[in-house]
Design a binder for these strands. Sequence first.
RNA 1: GCGGGCAUAGCUCAGUGGUAGAGCAUCAGCUUCCCAAGCUGAGGGCCGUGGGUUCGAACCCCAUUGCCCGCUCCA
Length: 508
Amino acid sequence: MKQEEYFKKLTAHAKEYGFVFQSSEIYDGLSAVYDYGQNGVELKNNIRNYWWKAMVQLQENIVGIDAAIFMHPTIWKASGHVDAFNDPLIDNKDSKKRYRADVLVEDYLAKIEDKINKEVERARKRFGESFDEQQFVTTNARVLEYTAQSKEIRNRLYAGMDANDMVSIKELIEDLGIVCPVSGTRNWTDVRQFNLMFSTKMGSVSEGASELYLRPETAQGIFVNYLNVQKTARMKIPFGIAQTGKAFRNEIVARQFIFRMREFEQMEMQFFVRPGEELKWFAYWKEERMKWHLSMGIPPEKFRFHDHEKLSHYANAATDIEFEFPFGFKELEGIHSRTDFDLEAHQKFSGKKLHYFDAELNQSYIPYVVETSIGLDRMFLAVLSYAYREEKLADGSERVVLMIPPMLAPVKAAILPLVAKDGLPEKAREIMDTLKYDFNCQYEEKDSIGRRYRRQDAIGTPYCITVDHQSLEDNTVTIRDRDSMNQERITIDKLTMAIAQKIRPQRI
RNA sequence: GCGGGCAUAGCUCAGUGGUAGAGCAUCAGCUUCCCAAGCUGAGGGCCGUGGGUUCGAACCCCAUUGCCCGCUCCA
């Protein structure tokens, strides 16, 4: 099956079986926002719980928090989001290419720099040994002209950027006669500002209300709480703080179903370490996180690392764990060595000392941070796109099955009376009433048994328990495995143990 | 944001100017039963939305919204 077709079928299946719905569908939908349905919410909760178990409950030196989505607006100045996420963009109408307007101007400036350098080199050749570069660049008429030009452009650019004056940046591009590198034309659209953060107002009256942002990442809630947690939990470095929660980004282009949404959920852990030891811990978490992914039984060839060469302003090492989605290998999780950038910035902006006293070293310092950050919705999509299968069976019939790892499956077991009479439903209800306290179960008596098996296959239920006439005689039932479709007969009192064992996570 | 494609029942789709259809699904009753489609009956659509052309529009035109693909962007 072609990948594109596969992805279409996957999204149709996700809707048809109550995993993912378009947000506000009856009002024509809301772009790049999705809702999770009755089965989707179970799968999502299971993924989140498994992550929490692995990253918090199984870790002696990691604790969790749940910070609010609203935070003090200065936090986003400190983190760099206010500045770094305001990109002025411009399109060339002929080539249909989009550029960052400030980058176009910067490129133009670079050309002027080149010209200056060429003048200098030419002069160096001409004057030989006696060449005084300093004197040349401060006296040569042509160089002075270039320098003045460059300075003026810079002034205009930075003034425009600081004032968020998009019109002046467009004028600057037009005045400079900058052409599109692809089409070579000056046929530009207006410069538009794309704000990656959603803003809102706090305060019931609009006058005097202060502008807030919906957080674009959960990490900052951890950083601003790091000393609270460290002190109240008596944490010693190295230690971690984990958090799951919603984040919001006003993506320019949001696409590919739930892969890139405007409202999404992150699962992050910030690990605080001694300065100088961050790369060791970066390597450690890189391996640990990959082990977590592989512990669910999805084959290793579906995953790969992608090390970043171009690093962002705060990181000194970064890698992605990529997953092979139906539309190719894409980022699923990021592991970053964030240095002391964030804590240093918060110390500066808040004026509060954010040092940690290390008793072993007898000194205090701002810890370095290694971050693991995974998109819950992306993990959901990864599991779903791995799980979706269309199988041809030996008898020539077909079935659609979601081979979701059993511990993540929305429904763990379906309890099915073979026929809806002869006392079988009553017996099945008894079993249901026992199992439902331990597992999410479904009871179904409508339609033929084969059809009920297929319905459960379609939502990924790993086990079907069938009550037949023999059950009434000897208290045994059959338990059917979703993937192999094989059945074995076991006594009813062993069911809880048998299922619990099958859905327990492996050692990570 | 640009270009292209798509939008008809819960799902998959047929229907190209003259009274909205099929299969599956759903619901009720009967029947059978260990791997999807037995019988009978029923419900469900102002054909994405808003305009226009026409005696008449699901169908032609314009706009708009959403989805998909490509470009672009992506700590």
